[in-house]
Design a protein around this nucleic acid. Sequence first.
RNA 1: GCCCACAUGGCUCAGGGGUAGAGCACUCCCUUGGUAAGGGAGAGGUCGCGAGUUCGAAUCUCGCUGUGGGCACCA
Length: 638
Amino acid sequence: MSVTLTLPDNSQRHFDGPVTGADLAADIGPGLAKAAMAVRVDGQLRDLDVPITTDAHVALITARDEEEALELIRHDTAHVLAEAVQELFPDTQVTIGPVIKDGFFYDFARDKPFTTEELEVIEARMHEIVARNEPIRREVWDRDQAIAHFRSIGEKYKAEIIEDLPQGEDVSVYRHGDNWLDLCRGPHLPSSGRIGSAFKLMKVAGAYWRGDHRNEMLTRIYGTAWRDKKELKAYLHRLEEAEKRDHRRLGKDMQLFHFQEEAAGMAFWHPKGWAVYRALEDYIRRKLDKAGYKEIKTPQIVDRSLWEKSGHWDKFAEHMYALTSEDRDLAVKPMNCPCHVQVFNQHLHSYRDLPLRLSEFGSCHRYEPSGAMHGLMRVRAFTQDDAHIFCTEDQIRSESEAFSALLFEVYKDLGFEQVRVKFSDRPDVRAGDDATWDRAEAALKDATQAMGLDVELNPGEGAFYGPKLEFVLTDAIGRDWQCGTLQVDFVLPERLDASYVGEDGNRHRPVMLHRAIFGSFERFIGILIEHYAGRFPLWLAPVQVVVATITSDADAYAQQVLERLKAAGLRAELDVRNEKINYKVREHSVAKVPVLLVVGKREAEEQKLSVRRLGSQDQTTETLDDAIASLVEQARMP
RNA sequence: GCCCACAUGGCUCAGGGGUAGAGCACUCCCUUGGUAAGGGAGAGGUCGCGAGUUCGAAUCUCGCUGUGGGCACCA
């Protein structure tokens, strides 16, 4: 029986019998034999030592195949980590160890979690195992035999994993050297030496077995692994850079906001941070006004009965701030929708009123679990750029389109060009009949298609009350943030008895569209800080202009310039300190002030300004009037 | 909420059983300097909170709170 293998360049090689990826590589050349990591056979990645028995399209994987190579290296490094751990701590059970973005992790079951010192010891042992260059071989075992084996050596988690596999299915295990083995689907590198030394254990963490908080907690070790030291170094450098733009760091440095333990999870906004907040609020308010929204404001505290009617108390009571006053049970609002329905219900609406778009910068409080909080990104007090569109079913499509258009415009204005849209359709547990779901999903889908949006399907992830679109933006360093949302809801209008009079003179239920563009101001500002690394565009910058003097002879003129800037509506500050101009330039540059106006004797005499922009070495000299006029123009919100 | 780590002047951090140290920032003095740190002096902390061990605790132990990294959660 001969085997013909077709290579990526369409050349063919003939063999008399079954051949392994390793044979093939050796046949092509010694360089490739050394470099080959795995082989792709008809699209499937396989071990190098697995015989190929039929004609196939094959490709040998080497370090040049970035994606596959990293996958293989990280996967094998995870196994070597497990091997090292079990050599050093034989009482430890292994569980799972998948590849993740930038690295891998492995979860272990052990009485005591690993310490940082142990991590170092483990890493050292991993390097030894790599140096041993143990062969890694695949073995195929009978399922029940595998269960019995892992049970007998006290690996109950592995046994449990195999038990979940279908009856009669063989399982593969990989043997490192002579003794150590681990259950795994593979494929793997031919030997442990092929991993190289560009890996590093990063941190220990707890993680629930099978991701379920009712299960026991395992110890997870996170690691990173790369093709070479240079890549590893670049990755570690990337982490440092990301840390520099951390909004908590910059929020402190730039005096934007702070947190303190008397109000955990609730931001104290400082003048500079609040200036950013206000600029953003002014901006979005104008956009919403233009898009036909009507802004309202509803109470912070509402009787519990409303939350019971809306269904929120049932589901989220634990996460609501409840209080009692004069024998009434109240709750601080965790969301605005029920209140918006109350506003809607104050009038008997005609179909002619629809769509009615009610917006609110709604201040909400939710008791988030202590471990969930994270700077501005996850807080207990936040303000949503919330709105609810009351409309007919027929209007879902056009309203969705209009909303998406608005959202893209806003994201673009804020410097986010790359936005993904996820479409979440009906979940298993849901309210409403299938015909209504059909119509709602179709309307949403139509709207996205009409706009030519690329939509990722998120099957079964819709809210129980209706399908939704989620808008995910990508920031300057490639991280994804889900911010915008558009949710179709035909349940809440029912529960809170919203209705309108239709053309036919009868009462009908409106559909409610829940929608937000930022999500929450707090979180969105956090994202903006990190996206811009604190260097806000002029219209958002907390301090837009600093007037800095070279000599005290220019103080009076500088004061006059400041007044002019403020009168023109710019956020400006004055620096007349007894310091050298070098010092002032440095300080305001570090503080990320976009425009520095330097004034010395010359400028004062000629009524001019020396304009220096952040990030630029040179400066221009302009007349006072010109400079202010052009700054006002540049600082205009989009 | 769960696991691990951390908590020292405004900020960044060092120290560590015998009652605290640096740099930057701050105040004052000298310097009036033309585009990324001029010089000098000074002030500033009951070492997160509470208990325990000890002759003595900021330091060791326990509890609490908060923060960080994960997990779980996220209307």
